[in-house]
Design a protein around this nucleic acid. Structure first.
Length: 849
RNA sequence: GCCCUCGUGGUGAAAUUGGUAGACACAAAGGACUUAAAAUCCUUGCCCAUUAGGGAGUGCCAGUUCGAGUCUGGCCGAGGGCACCA
């Protein structure tokens, strides 16, 4: 008996699939389409286990859908602009383009070894002119639609990367890549008006039934809709300021008003610029915004002005106006009214500056003497101490009625605010899509005419110069449009723009004149199943939704609102971490263990290794496993099997060498079984009576797997397959009808095909079966049975199981039970109070003891 | 601080949605085969009992129910998201 030689066989089928263009897809309106997409990778040069898991999950689904008769679009490409190329270029003196292209070719080879059913004919790379020229055209179209604008504002400046970061790219006050605290800097930037679609982006979530709730919640919180009103406060003082506008969600607590706080960037700050105390305060605020310490402490500081604000509902009430560090200029109007009794932040501030604390809401179970002390009361209740508002129910009634009063008095109006801010897309980098804009001497903006696209990146560039390389490309910068001397925009687009429409490009990747072909786009979009890491829950997924809406905006022909109908976020691949005594990370290759508890330096059992917790694989912690080596040692099918077994796909999976070996061995065992079956089939042995059992098992299996595919329970599918092996391996020793075996085994191989495609295809060919098999259908008559196992409980505890014909009456069942010794001893001499009978399933005898 | 998710054997996990808890796999221990090892196969799995069998048991405490891993309330713990959002 031959061992299964995965190297030869996997190579053989990969070649076959490629040469016969098996996975190339074409528009075919006679067929139902299915667009299966996995998030495309950044071409770092090496695939990692995260990719392997992601693409295995997607490939299984794509193959199943294809076998089910769908016309499946399953493409792959490269998110190939970005900073690492520039950094690598500096280190190795290689042009980013060359570095990127060689990485792509290496990674493509690795992906091909996984045996994925990808249509490589549709491969795209975002750094190619063929891709980014369309993006530049979109940029101009969005500009024409008024969805792109330029403004000067404060930006998150990453001092290491020397570039601007979007809010979403700042994590804990630090750059998402550099990990260094970001600084505030004022710059002229291009923006996408994403906030224009706040409402649509929020409402759209409700229709995304096949998205994880977790992601929808995260986006919902990010968009941050809040309902309230804007109120004008009259200002008294010795400065030419008449009023300050505030946004509030709690107008009903207006009688608890005790101070008014504005941002240091508020327009009124211009009157204080000569005050050295204020300048000092403002500097302090800009510092505290970013340091880790201030975030942890969250200390509220203020600068008292000599201005006073008047409560519009009670002119007699005058309160001081402060500048405060906790008020943000880019939310609401950069000003808030403080009600310490019912807002913890306001209470902290009031305590620090000895401001009045007036309770205006009491809980239902307290009386009107209720007084807020150490903790602000933010719960429901009734309004008190508020004159004509007294007695209103908090929150709904009180807020709605107060807004009505405010509107009648014409001191403010209802307002809905969003936390979502516009998307700053300018980056001071070379390796990105050039922004197709230019300026005259006065800074007036001129879009590059569409016929002049693409704006190509200059090839000869000095990446070692300081700042933005394009800014230093003096020749490139100069441009003449309609006889006018202009200077090009030197910023490039955030790479998240590149990935905001690549899924549309895949529909018609070779369309020359425009980013997509309408007919193709309408056939393939939306993506039916999108699969990727949860780390993109906000950034990429929100931007892509926005971009799709922006393309649709003022374009009746487009007619697509949501790009991703289904979303699945897979978990990460984790591995234990190892450190030596000098606190240096060690890779799994460098350590060994005999008992699984004590680890030593490889080849040196005296050097003990400290084992850390299992964390997601990362280069910095050295806890990575190289997929290329694993595929080399165990084969693609084994790795695919392991990626799906053990943990549910949405959860993190723990890498385990033993688990990997087990999967490899299992495929060897499957091969041994295959050889046994083949021998049996050759003998054409026939035996009646053994058919039914096999057919029944197979049909029930198909049914189970169908349900588990639906729910993405791929780990359970693998368990089902192990059960199948165990079942067949036992039955093969009996005499089996050859026709029945052949028929059912073919179905089993069809079920295996999406998961371990090389193995299953080889087995099919070995049996001379056309390997272009369909996904097997369930014959429902085999799902039911005349017999059933009825669980017999006594007082809710299982005491026995009775096998009998279905539809048995409770009385007949009782007769059987009375003869059952196991049950007998419980019911003998006891008074049977009652019994609960769930037909064909369970009988519970409730007995008084 | 606010929001979300999750707590099941030594480990990864299943559980028809309120009805046999621990499928399937990894690890461990014991055994079979073998001169031996590898490979393969079988058994065990927490407590009591020689066995038959019985008991406890899904983070903890209550509750609803004939019956709770599943539903409700409270507590504890872990993970993730957000960061002064007015």
């Amino acid at each position: 008996m031959d061992r299964y030689n995965f190297k030869v066989i996997e190579n053989k089928w990969q070649k076959f699939w490629e040469e016969n263009k098996v996975y190339e897809t074409k528009l075919d309106k006679s067929k139902k389409k299915f667009y299966c997409l996995e998030m495309f990778p950044y071409p770092s040069g090496k695939i990692h286990m995260g990719h392997v898991r992601n693409y295995t999950i997607g490939d299984v689904l794509a193959r199943i859908k294809s076998m089910q008769g769908y016309n499946v679009l399953h493409p792959m490409g490269w998110d190939s602009f970005g900073l690492p190329a520039e950094n690598a270029a500096k280190e190795n003196n290689l042009h980013p383009k060359n570095w990127t292209e060689s990485n792509i070719s290496m990674m493509k080879n690795q992906l091909k070894k996984m045996g994925l059913s990808l249509d490589w004919n549709r491969e795209i790379s975002t750094c190619s002119e063929e891709y980014y020229k369309h993006q530049q055209l979109f940029f101009l179209e969005l500009y024409e639609k008024g969805l792109v604008y330029r403004k000067e504002n404060y930006v998150n400046w990453d001092p290491v990367e020397q570039t601007v970061l979007a809010n979403e790219q700042v994590i804990d006050g630090k750059g998402w890549r550099s990990g260094v605290p970001v600084e505030r800097k004022k710059l002229n930037q291009w923006f996408f008006n994403i906030s224009k679609f706040s409402e649509e982006l929020l409402e759209g979530l409700d229709n995304l039934e096949n998205w994880p709730d977790k992601v929808k919640t995260m986006q919902k919180n990010w968009i941050g809709k809040s309902f309230g009103c804007e109120i004008d406060f009259k200002i008294e003082g010795n400065l030419p300021i008449n009023k300050i506008k505030c946004f509030t969600t709690r107008p009903d607590t207006l009688f608890g008003f005790s101070f008014l706080a504005v941002s240091v960037d508020h327009p009124i700050s211009k009157h204080f610029l000569k005050d050295p105390e204020f300048i000092k305060f403002r500097e302090e605020c800009s510092k505290t915004g970013t340091t880790e310490e201030s975030i942890a402490l969250g200390e509220k500081i203020g600068f008292k002005t000599n201005l006073f604000a008047i409560n519009p509902l009670d002119e007699k009430q005058k309160v001081p106006v402060f500048f405060a560090n906790f008020v943000l200029m880019d939310y609401g109007f950069g000003a808030v009214f403080g009600c310490p009794a019912h807002d913890q932040r306001d209470l902290d501030f009031a305590n620090k500056y000895n401001l009045k604390i007036k309770t205006v809401v009491r809980p239902i179970d307290e009386d009107n003497n209720f007084v807020v002390q150490k903790e602000a009361y933010t719960g429901p209740g009734l309004i008190i101490n508020s004159k004509f508002l007294d007695g209103l129910k908090v929150p709904d009634e009180s807020i709605i009625k107060t807004i009505k009063i405010i509107e009648e008095k014409e001191i403010g109006k209802k307002k809905i605010n969003f936390r979502l801010k516009d998307w700053g897309v300018s980056r001071q980098r070379y390796w990105g899509c050039p922004i197709p804009m230019a300026y005259d001497k006065n800074g007036k903006v001129f879009p590059i005419p569409k016929k002049n696209l693409p704006v190509k990146l200059p090839e000869n560039i000095d990446l070692n110069s300081k700042g933005n390389p394009l800014d230093n490309a003096n020749e490139w910068k100069k441009i003449r449009i309609n006889g006018q001397e202009l200077t090009r925009e030197t910023d490039t687009l955030d790479t998240f723009v590149d990935s905001s429409w690549y899924f549309i490009r895949f529909c018609s990747p070779n369309n020359k004149n425009y980013g997509f072909d309408y007919e193709e786009m309408k056939y393939w979009m939306p993506v039916d199943q999108y699969i990727g890491g949860v780390e993109h829950a906000i950034l990429h997924l929100l931007y892509s939704r926005f971009f799709t809406m922006a393309l649709n905006y003022k374009n009746d022909n487009f007619n697509l609102y949501e790009p991703f109908k289904g979303l699945f976020t897979q978990g990460m691949v984790c591995h234990e971490t190892y450190k030596n005594k000098d606190d240096k990370w060690l890779s799994p290759d460098e350590v060994e263990t005999k008992d699984g508890k004590n680890y030593f330096l490889k080849g040196n059992p005296t050097k003990k290794i400290i084992v850390g917790p299992s964390e997601s694989m990362s280069k910095s912690k050295k806890n990575t496993i190289d997929p290329e080596k694993i595929i080399e040692n165990y084969g693609a099918d084994s790795v695919r099997l392991f990626m799906l077994s053990d943990s549910p796909p949405e959860k993190d999976v723990q890498w385990s060498d033993q688990g990997m070996v087990a999967c490899y061995k299992f495929i060897q065992k499957l091969w041994t079984l295959h050889e046994k079956i083949k021998t049996k089939l050759k003998k054409k042995e026939s035996s009646e009576g053994k058919n039914e059992e096999l057919t029944k098992f197979t049909n029930q299996l198909i049914d189970k797997i169908n349900k588990n595919v639906e729910k993405f329970n791929y780990n359970v599918i693998i368990a089902n397959i192990y059960e199948t092996y165990n079942f067949f391996n036992e039955k093969i020793n009996d005499s089996i009808n050859a026709n029945s075996l052949s028929e059912n085994y073919k179905k089993i191989l069809s079920l295996l095909l999406p998961i371990i495609p090389h193995f299953a295809t080889e087995c099919l060919e070995d049996l001379k079966i056309n390997h272009n098999v369909k996904w097997p259908l369930v014959d429902k008559k085999f799902l039911t049975s005349d017999e059933t196992n009825i669980v017999i409980q006594v007082n809710g505890k299982k005491r026995s199981i009775v096998n009998c014909k279905k539809g048995i009456s409770e009385e007949s069942l009782m007769k059987i039970i009375k003869k059952d010794l196991k049950i007998n001893k419980f019911i003998n001499n006891k008074k049977n109070i009652k019994s609960i009978y769930i037909k064909d399933k369970l009988l519970n005898l409730v007995i008084k003891t």
